[in-house]
Structure formats: C-alpha cells, structure tokens
Design a protein around this nucleic acid. Structure first.
Length: 265
DNA sequence: ATTGTGGCCTGCCCGC
DNA sequence: TGCGGGCAGGCCACAA
C-alpha cells in the first residue's frame, strides 16, 4: 500500500540489512521477478554478496550490492505495488508507521534473502503487483518528490494538456506521489485534479510546490500517506473537512479521485 | 510524443 | 452462510 512515505520507512528498515553476507535467495513466486533476469542469475549475483547502501527514488527501493565479483556494481530494485511490504528479521519496521492491520502469511512471501547470520529480508505482497528486479533503470523515474524544486515541478507540468493529477502521479516526471497523496496535495493546494497540468499560473505552481513538500513532510511525520486530512472524508457521503461541501468522486488519470468542488478550482 | 484504457493479481467487504 | 460484484494507496503494454 505504499507511496513515498511508506517506501522511505522501508528504506530505513532495509538499513538493518546492510553489510550482512547473503547465504540464500528464495523467489516465492517467479512472477515477482521482473525484467530480463532469470531466477538463476539473480541468485548467482546475490549469493555471497551483501547490501552496501539502501536508497530510494520515488517508490523504488534500491539496494546497492557490495562484495566481490560477480555482484560488484549490481543493484537490487524493489517495488511494492499496492499491497507490498518489507520485513527484516521478521519485523515490519512500521512500529513507527500506523498502518492498517497487516496479516503476515507465508504464502505471501514473494521474495526472500537469507543472511549467513540467520536473519532475513522478505518482501510480502498478496497481490503480486510489486516486484524485484536486477539493475532497474532508475533514470526512467523523474526527480524525487521530497526534494523537488520549483523548477523541477514546472518541468513536470510543462505545457501538458493532461489532467493535473495524472501528471503528479506520472512517475517518469515526478517520482513518489501516488493516488492518495495526489488527492491530499491537490485538496490542500485548492486545485482541481481535472485542471490541465499546463494551465497553472505561476502563483498556483508555487502553491502546489509548497504543498507537495509540506504534505510529504507532514504525512511522513504522522506515519503514512493514509493519514491526510482529506482521508476520513474520502468515502461515499464524505464532506470537505475545510468547507463542508459534498466531495465529488470520479475517475481522473485512471484512478478514483475525491475532491471538493467548492474550493478546488 | 502524449494521453487514455485495459489488464495484471488477490483479498476484502458489501448486499442479496 | 454463500456468492457475485465492486473495489483497492501501482504500473505496464498497447492503441489512438
């Protein structure tokens, strides 16, 4: 269920897995391995190596491999899809994240790395919409939303005729904002998700930029992207927490969207 | 190139 | 209680 704040929490959790020699790799479901790499090759690269650095770009977690050839210079990419989660040594690490209840079932373990010290790093994903890949192309992702500059936001919006929300969620142009965060950010910025992305005035773009950064900071501090102010109202019959207007629900950018027709223009 | 759509997957919740 | 439909915080291939 991760968006940027959740993946950042996983990144911190993954730091517990650094510097520990890998003894074995278990691919719980072959469909979970994405890209051209074979399971055999993935094992070959990972076994005996250890993770050096845990990085994140948008919703992609990247673990750099250290050690000697053949693993040197390779990277393991992990995407969590809508239902993925990470466990290191059996701990979800979201003690700090207030998450909806998360069952842990063995059959949902799609990928696991076991360390020589007896611990493990496990990716859990009931729906299989996430995946792991060897050497993912990180350049396919736009600038990370947490450090987004105003100029980068202008570049992401460009002169596009696409709905504003679709551009915000376009990972190639701006990495890390998902459906819930997009609704929350646009609600706070008083901008309609249906606005053409290229139609924002300079003042509106600055406002949006500020709200992207503030919202990410706030929700990360609160413990997750589902803890936004709009979230409780994001359901049938929901009313705008700011002005009480009945929220509108529709599909924008292919995703269910909720917004206030009164103050989001 | 840009934008929109359907599909991938499984689990859950609601109404009948 | 059982069953069907709709829904889900993501992403990718494909079509116009």
């Amino acid at each position: 269920m991760p968006e940027l704040p959740e993946v950042e929490a996983y990144r911190r959790l993954a730091e517990r897995a650094l510097g520990r020699p890998i003894s074995s790799v278990v691919l719980g479901d072959p469909r979970f391995l994405r890209g051209p790499t074979s399971p055999r090759r993935l094992r070959h690269i990972l076994r005996g190596a250890s993770f050096d650095v845990a990085r994140r770009r948008g919703k992609l977690l990247v673990l750099d491999l250290g050690g000697t050839p053949p693993s040197t210079g390779h990277r393991l990419g992990i995407r969590f899809g809508m239902t993925g989660s990470l466990l290191v040594d059996g701990s979800s690490g979201d003690e700090e994240l207030i998450y909806s209840s998360r069952r842990v079932e063995k059959r949902w373990e799609r990928f696991a790395v076991h360390f020589a010290d007896g611990g493990s790093l496990v990716v859990h994903d009931p729906r299989l919409l996430g995946g792991v890949s060897l050497d993912p192309d990180e350049e396919l992702l736009g600038p990370d939303a947490t450090t987004l500059t105003l100029a980068q936001l202008r570049g992401a919006l460009d002169t596009s005729a696409a709905p504003l929300k679709a551009r915000l969620m376009d990972q190639a142009r701006l990495a890390g904002v998902g459906n819930l965060l997009a609704d929350e950010i646009l609600w706070r910025a008083s901008l309609s998700p249906q606005r053409r992305a290229g139609s924002l005035t300079p003042a509106e773009t600055r406002r949006l930029h500020r709200h992207i950064r503030v919202t990410l900071d706030e929700l990360s501090a609160r413990g997750g992207s589902h803890l936004g102010d709009l979230m409780p109202a994001r359901q049938p019959g929901g009313r705008c927490p700011r002005d009480g207007a009945a929220l509108v629900r529709s599909t924008v950018g292919g995703r269910t969207s909720w917004w206030c027709p009164r103050h989001q223009g």
